[in-house]
Design a protein around this nucleic acid. Structure first.
Lengths: 205, 205
DNA sequence: GGCTAAACCCAAGAATTATTGGGGCTTGCG
DNA sequence: CGCAAGCCCCAATAATTCTTGGGTTTAGCC
């Protein structure tokens, strides 16, 4: 029998690791060689022991998966598949830009993971139908903020008053109000108190 | 051989279901009789087919686990064990008050789940060490808000202006400002724009 | 009962914030 | 060039929000 494709699992939930073991035990082509529960340890592991496929969770207690991805991508001949429990599409989009070669939700049928592995080995990028739908809605409204508007948005997010902001930026108070009105217009909200919330939805912070 | 203890799994992640299957396949005492991926279906299931133990996820797409718990608890002779991926201790505390008989994190070793089942069968309530630590820090700062203050906090969280709130509650605008000042004092923040953020930290919403 | 504390309410004036109307700057385009 | 569009700025004025000082009611306690 030919050599199996080696897999590294990086996920902080032991129960998920178990699930993946059970899944891949039914597929002779693959073999899980290690399962890590901390993102920080993944980088060192793949340097010392290369694997064919990394299955990577995005949400871990010590570090976000995208940071792990950024570290290990490109090194060796290795494909990374994102397995995520939440639907942070902005972050998933970023992961794909970084070079992730597959995206599957934990809410998808397990066979989607196998499909992603198959696609990755064939040189393709596989995004499960559910994730694909969410990603497609991402590019709808590209809100472009000027540097001044962005600066003021950040101060707003920190809860500063207009007066404080005007001191910090050495501009008059009505100018701050003017920029805030622009933010309201661009973010399409009727009320200042909704600006920060909406900005977070659009991942502008 | 004597009858096994029957288990119902309610979790929207198939991969977690697989993990639990693998886990319980190593323990003869237990048998998973069904695994549901929607909370809404759980209530009907336990009515038609009683089980000994329900392993219940808190974070599901259709409904939160605590609502499922509230529906099924007390009916039949059944214990519910919470298995959660996030650490929303306020919600977990509420689940225990509702009558959950165990709390385990998905980040805990799988054997914690077995331990919780054992304890439940022995009539005890088991909370994994990690979860227990988080719960103990919950009772530190009991911020008591009056009903009026709570109502206004909710409107603030929805981004409504003072004027809108004064219309909704049929009170004068300065009265709204007065209550907001009280919220600022009780939540110990210097600025209105920080109220909602702080309230979320304290799980008042 | 009398006392205190806390919640709730409001009018008037103070403070903050928003809008309007205007000006200057740069960039891209006919 | 001329001109539109976007950004940045501000003074004056308008609107909103806050604070102050005062009132009522309720609940607990001596």
């Amino acid at each position: 029998m030919t050599t199996k494709h080696t897999i590294l699992v990086v996920d902080d939930h032991p129960i998920t690791q178990s699930g993946l073991r059970l899944l891949f035990s039914r597929h002779d082509k693959y073999e899980i060689v290690e399962a890590l529960d901390r993102g920080a340890t993944a980088s060192a592991f793949v340097q010392s022991q290369p694997v064919d496929i990394v299955i990577l969770d995005l949400n871990m207690p010590d570090v976000r998966g995208v940071n792990v991805l950024a570290e290990i991508v490109g090194s060796r001949d290795m494909t990374v598949i994102i397995l995520t429990g939440e639907s942070h599409f902005q972050e998933i989009d970023y992961a794909l830009k970084l070079g992730a070669r597959g995206v599957v939700s934990k809410a998808d049928p397990p066979e989607e993971i196998i499909a992603a592995c198959e696609a990755a080995l064939a040189g393709e990028v596989y995004v499960s139908p559910q994730m694909r739908e969410g990603l497609s809605r991402l590019t709808e409204a590209p809100v472009a903020l000027s540097s001044r508007q962005m600066a003021i948005l950040h101060y707003l997010a920190q809860g500063e008053s207009n007066k404080e902001i005007s001191y910090r930026l050495s501009i008059a108070q009505p100018t701050v109000s003017f920029h805030i009105a622009e933010l309201r217009r661009k973010l399409d909200v009727s009320n200042n108190r909704k600006i920060v919330e909406r900005a977070q939805e659009l991942n502008l912070l």
